Simulated assay, not measured.
Amino acid sequence: MQPNPLRIGTRGSALALAQAHETRDRLMAAHGLADEAFEIVVIKTSGDRIQDRPLSEVGGKGLFTKEIEEALLDKRIDIAVHSSKDMPTHLPDGLALTAFLPREDVRDAFLSPKATSLNDLPEGAVIGSSSLRRQAMIKRIRPDIDVVMYRGNLQTRLRKLAEGEVDATLLAAAGLNRLGLEQEITSLLDTNDFLPAVGQGAICIESRENDAATLSMLAAIHDPDTQIRLDAERAFLAVLDGSCRTPIGGLATLDGGRLHFKGIVLKPDGSEAHEAEETGAVEDAVKIGVSVGEALKERMGPSFLAET
């Protein structure tokens, strides 16, 4: 089916490689191919190189995709495997998100050797997190807690926690599950209280829009339900011009032919938050995401995002 190996572009972290291997394994099973039919190409991104500053200060989430997308456009790779939450809302011309794998657990995981939950941490405890959304939501629930920047891949963050650099951290449950590290989770945060990042738990595959052969291969592993949910979430994010500089959370869920979406925008210090939600037909996923985004924009007023 594929005269040359299908080249799968990915970042080089253990989690990124696990996601690339999952994509390869699903394609192997769907098409009856051996692993020789695929080549995993590791690409170092700006986000991987910059470890000493918050991403919000140096360009936001596009730092994890720019070099990989350049390789796609230059035809050095055939597909790119990403964490959906890393994807900017606007993609380069000629590229598209053309497949989504079945979504993993969307929740944030609380990890700590000192407490069983966020609420059980002692006053003045230190939590490490590089996510503005998590920082703001932690502050909203526990304004007494000190939140410090916490960059590095998942294994680095676990090591820092074990060495006592912080009292606790929050990580995506999906990443821990994909690496077989679910035993590290102390507890899981309820999405009713702690909305995840847009796209959290979902692996997306980016490819060239005009690459018919590759699109045909990907169709066999595409999960339509995940795409419907992500369509709503990404439409919501696009309305708010969301980036790593804005604490935003959003989650779409499906129940039969109905889609429910809830979104939140916060001040970075958690002192103010606005939430909105809407339910409608799955066919209206994008419309629902846009509607919730516009409702939040109206409630916040023109100065809210500028102040963040």
Rank of each mutant, 00 (worst) to 15 (best):
L111P: 10
K297W: 02
K75L: 07
R159Q: 09
L118V: 09
F110D: 06
P196Y: 04
G201H: 04
S187F: 08
L188H: 05
F38G: 07
L195K: 02
V106G: 01
H31Y: 02
T246F: 13
H274P: 01
D144M: 01
D25Q: 13
F236M: 10
K114Y: 13
L305H: 05
A273T: 10
V126C: 08
G199P: 04
S112K: 06
I264L: 14
P113M: 02
A30W: 05
M137L: 09
R245S: 15
I79M: 00
R151G: 06
T156Y: 04
G164M: 00
V292K: 06
A29D: 07
N153K: 03
T279L: 03
A30S: 10
A80Y: 00
K297P: 01
K114Q: 13
S131P: 07
R76Y: 03
L218F: 02
A238H: 14
Q155C: 04
Q227C: 07
V290H: 11
D241V: 05
N4K: 13
R26W: 00
G199E: 06
L27D: 06
L237A: 15
L230E: 15
A30V: 01
T214M: 04
F64C: 05
S187M: 08
L33W: 09
L179E: 13
N4I: 07
G152I: 06
D225W: 01
V290T: 15
E283G: 15
L91V: 03
A125T: 07
R107A: 13
T98Q: 11
R208A: 09
D241L: 02
A29N: 05
I68W: 01
E209F: 03
K267A: 15
G47K: 03
L179T: 08
S112A: 08
